[in-house]
Amino acid sequence: MVFMDQTGAKIGATLWQELFPEFEVMLHCGSAYVIQNIKVVENHSKYKVSRIPFLVYLVKTTSVKEAKHPMIPTNVHVITPFVDIIDGVAPRDTLVNVVGVVVEVIEHKTVNPTYRVTVKLRDNSDGDMILTV
């Protein structure tokens, strides 16, 4: 998960697999919450969602309450143009947000237990990028 505050600052968040069913019903993308009693650890992950060197862990005693009047503006997302990724201008040490239209499905494979799809995406400036997920 990625948590974001009212300024657009992002930090990675995660939880133990056995807590997933409990928190899945409480957290929804795009909503605002007051979250208390978390564990903050150094982020040693190879893939980071932000330059913040920490990671938030939700624990058994974490409290989640939806905010009635979210103070987070709707336009805080920083979308990275494909050309910045291809030219190496986009940050290499963090994940970036991209928006594109699937132009072509190049390949899809089911390899036990994972599923892999390779697509061609096109952004608003007609830049194309091949992406495998």
Results as ranks from 00 to 15, higher is better:
V2G: 02
M4D: 01
D5P: 11
Q6R: 15
T7Q: 10
G8W: 03
G8H: 04
A9H: 12
A9I: 11
K10V: 05
T14C: 04
L15Y: 05
W16F: 13
W16R: 13
Q17A: 08
E18P: 00
E18R: 11
L19E: 04
F20G: 03
P21W: 01
P21M: 02
P21C: 02
F23A: 01
E24L: 07
E24M: 07
V25P: 02
V25Q: 14
V25Y: 07
M26R: 15
L27E: 06
C29R: 06
C29G: 09
G30L: 08
S31R: 15
S31N: 14
Y33N: 03
I35R: 03
Q36S: 13
N37P: 07
V40H: 04
V41D: 14
V41Y: 03
H44G: 14
S45Q: 11
Y47M: 06
K48L: 05
K48S: 01
S50D: 07
P53R: 02
P53C: 00
F54T: 12
F54P: 04
F54R: 05
L55A: 04
L55Y: 03
Y57L: 14
L58F: 15
K60F: 13
K60S: 15
T61Y: 12
T61K: 12
T61P: 04
T62F: 09
S63D: 12
K65Q: 15
K65W: 04
E66G: 08
E66I: 02
A67K: 13
K68Q: 15
K68M: 12
H69I: 08
P70A: 05
M71L: 15
M71R: 14
I72W: 09
T74L: 11
T74I: 09
V76N: 09
V76W: 00
V76L: 15
H77Q: 07
V78G: 03
V78K: 13
I79Q: 02
I79S: 00
P81A: 01
I85N: 06
G88A: 02
A90Y: 12
A90M: 10
P91N: 06
D93M: 03
V96H: 02
V98T: 10
V102F: 03
V103T: 11
V105L: 06
I106A: 01
E107I: 00
E107F: 04
E107W: 04
E107R: 14
H108M: 06
H108I: 04
K109G: 00
T110V: 12
P113T: 00
P113M: 00
T114C: 02
Y115G: 01
Y115R: 12
R116E: 12
V117E: 11
V117Q: 10
V119L: 10
V119K: 03
V119R: 01
K120T: 15
D123G: 06
N124P: 08
N124Q: 11
S125M: 14
S125W: 14
D126V: 04
D126S: 13
G127P: 01
G127S: 11
D128V: 08
M129D: 06
M129Y: 07
